[in-house]
Amino acid sequence: MEPVIVHHFLVCRRATSDFSQPDNPYSLHNVVFQLSPEAGEAYPLDGIDLWVFVRFEGEDEHEFWVDVVRVASDDEYEVEEITTYGPLIVPFGHAPRTVIRAWYLRGVPFPIAGVYEFRLRQGSEIIAVETIRLEE
């Protein structure tokens, strides 16, 4: 069986779907690279609603997880596990097929400012990573 291949893995503030466009139903809004607390907010941020967009290909059915980790140290590449979402079940089908998904991650916690990674994980293997920055 071929391994799952990730084409795109993005984090955004909002995603919408248009059922009248079945070939390309998803639209992404405000793809995230950097986030700042809004006026009056302070760390820890108890939850920011985000979306992850994935285009990948594979066959058969697979289970995925999205882990959120904070990169605690650039030098040693130490990470702190923040939270996890899943299981995200994707039935690809009997032959290799490309599948597109947008998943809503409710209330992602960000305890302090810093660099965070969203890791798309299949079992124990991380198959895609997206990095964002949380500013002071």
């Binding site: 995603a15 779907s17 059922f19 139903p25 998803y26 939850g47 999205v66 939270t83 996890t84 979402y85 899943g86 995200l88 998904r101 947008a102 998943w103 809503y104 991650l105 409710r106 209330g107 992602v108 916690p109």
Partner: peptide
């Protein structure tokens, strides 16, 4: 389209 909502564990 699959736009499932997930809560943090």
């Amino acid at each position: 389209p699959d736009m499932t909502e997930y809560e943090p564990i």
